[in-house]
């Protein structure tokens, strides 16, 4: 096309002529130089930003188990650890086993140990992103299920998350958020009919996890004398502090915390194929953890080798 005046980008244009960068610099391709420059920039960038690199054998998920040597026999504890180990080995997870008495929690119920234990697992496995705490009275019944595909994958979690349900059933004012995307969830646990149940919980590593665990473990709550100790403390911080509630997801009980059926068709009662069975407070008077464990472990699904 021809115009009365040359276009702005034409070689005769004064805008170009006065430029200190020759026109040809833009119009010519010089792939080699561009490529070299790009590579150099990338090397500089990534060389600086990546610190110590992640070892290839670092597991992406770690099971955290606290055993109670005061109330359980060594034999029983071995059985519990064996249950976890088979599962962890099948999926390439790490296993972190400690005793409740390992942590200086003060004169409070031993359930509080789970909080420093999670923190400890996080500092022991610095390259692991997902930590699964499972109480020693829980049995992994279906070791086929992986934590990622069964619970944590965002597509899956979106379907599982219970939205807009009261934190403490049946009618607490504070309810789980309706619109939090699954990608933002850092903390997954279940709820029974009395409230939040921290006997099976998944925590993602990060600054938020440190915040959750440190706030939960604060002596003010620990020594306050909540009726159900760490359980009620958790309910308290979840309900009073939106920065905690917003990263939390409640999933249906039978996803990772089924309990033995009592005959009534309760919600959350164990059915064949469920991931985990929680014997609950089997140390209570009139019950026997070891017997119950043996009874249930016989029904456990066996891994195909």
């Amino acid at each position: 096309m021809h115009f009365a005046l040359p276009t702005r980008n034409h070689r005769s244009s004064p805008f170009l002529a006065a430029s200190s960068v020759p026109r040809a610099y833009f119009s010519r391709r010089r792939p080699i130089y561009a490529l070299i420059a790009l590579v150099v920039i990338l090397i500089l960038f990534f060389g600086r930003s990546s610190g110590p690199s992640r070892p290839s054998d670092a597991p992406d998920t770690v099971l955290v188990l606290l055993v109670d040597r005061k109330h359980h026999s060594g034999e029983h504890i071995e059985r519990v650890i064996e249950n976890r180990r088979t599962y962890a080995e099948a999926h390439g997870y790490g296993l972190f086993v400690k005793s409740t008495s390992d942590y200086p929690i003060g004169p409070v119920p031993s359930g509080w140990s789970r909080i420093p234990a999670l923190r400890h697992a996080m500092s022991t496995f610095p390259y692991t992103s997902t930590f699964f705490f499972l109480d020693s009275n829980s049995i992994i019944m279906n070791p086929e299920l992986s934590i990622e595909s069964h619970i944590m994958a965002p597509e899956r979690l979106t379907k599982l998350m219970r939205r807009d349900v009261p934190i403490v059933p049946p009618d607490s004012v504070i309810k789980t958020y309706r619109h939090v995307p699954a990608e933002r969830i850092q903390f997954v646990l279940t709820q029974d009919k009395e409230g939040l149940d921290p006997s099976a919980m998944i925590v993602k590593r990060g600054q938020w996890a440190s915040y959750l665990l440190d706030a939960w473990f604060d002596p003010i709550f620990r020594l306050y004398g909540f009726q159900k100790a760490e359980r009620h403390a958790l309910e308290h911080i979840v309900q009073w502090h939106p920065t905690i509630l917003t990263k939390l997801a409640l999933v249906p009980q039978n996803i990772m915390n089924s309990f033995p059926s009592t005959g009534n068709s309760d919600e959350g009662a164990y059915e064949d194929g469920d991931f985990i069975l929680n014997l609950g407070d089997c140390e209570a008077y009139g019950r026997n953890c070891e017997k119950e464990w043996k009874k249930w472990i016989a029904k456990r699904a066996v891994l195909d080798e």
Partner: peptide
Amino acid sequence: RINGGGIGVNGAANGYPSFGARKF
């Protein structure tokens, strides 16, 4: 220098047909 590439139109005609990056 001042006029930069704008006046270089004669270059090719003067027998510099190849302009590799090195030349630039």
